[in-house]
Simulated scan of single mutants.
Amino acid sequence: MSDIASAAVFFPEKAAVYQSSFQQVKPTSRLVLTLMDGSERTFRVPMRVGRILQADLDALPQSASEAVDYIDSLQRRVAFSYLVDVLSRRDHSTKEIQDKLKGQGFSPSSIESAVEKARQSRYLDDARFASYFVDERVRRGWGRIKIEQELQRRGVDPAEIPGYPEEFFDEQSDVERAAALLARKSIPENKPFEKLVRHLMSKGFSYSIARDAVQQRLCRDS
């Protein structure tokens, strides 16, 4: 492969960057290498990678093949740095992190590298994430069904959580949490049983838990 004659980084228009704030996938920058034989090689890289390249284009190797390896290595480093920054704000599941990296425009190989390194360093741990997620949602008053649906949406199988579900749920505490939610609601005048049961089921409680909690509330208020 020919040596590099020149290199330039191009960024998307400001309007495209602004619109991307409402999208899952961000615009990427372009690194264009012009080779000695007159041909061009174009690379799509995340904007944060493009800014690093633009700031120091002289760091690019003059050999095109070595430049490709340099760009790949840079993407891997920046992907891992971005991953650590995201996790410093809150814990994420592996799937959430993969989606965020993909949305930034990182290559599949750099995503795989960053995720594997994070797992080895224990920055990423789906079991830890899931355990905290369940505890926190239980404190919010969520029911088991809704919690499991949200875990699955985040790429976590509840069956793989150590001690799940016995260490997180029991029927009596579920009824108590459902009752606490009902305590903040007034009793509808029309079809109170059906409406209150539907309300609790929308929060992720099973029909049997919702039924028991509503019956207790109606009996007490009657």
Rank of each mutant, 00 (worst) to 15 (best):
G105D: 05
D126G: 06
A130G: 11
S6D: 08
D58H: 04
D212Y: 11
G163L: 10
D99Y: 03
E166A: 11
Y132I: 08
K203V: 00
A59M: 07
Q98A: 10
I52P: 00
M201T: 13
G103P: 09
A5L: 11
P162Y: 05
Y82V: 15
A55E: 11
D85W: 14
I111H: 01
S81W: 02
L53Q: 03
A67S: 13
P162Q: 12
V197E: 08
D99E: 14
K146V: 02
F10L: 13
Q152E: 15
R41Y: 11
F43I: 01
K195I: 07
D221V: 14
R137G: 04
Q152D: 00
L151G: 09
M36T: 14
P192W: 08
S65G: 02
S107E: 11
S208I: 00
D99A: 09
S20E: 00
A67F: 04
D56M: 01
K195A: 04
Q98D: 11
Q19E: 10
R139E: 07
P108Q: 06
S6I: 04
R198M: 03
K102E: 14
K100R: 14
F168Y: 15
T42W: 08
E148L: 01
D126E: 04
A130K: 12
K100E: 12
F22S: 04
I111T: 01
A114F: 13
V78I: 15
R41W: 13
V78A: 05
Q54W: 01
E136W: 01
A64D: 03
L124F: 12
V32W: 01
R119T: 01
Q75N: 08
R211Y: 12
G155P: 10
K203S: 11
F22A: 12
V138M: 11
R139S: 03
W142H: 03
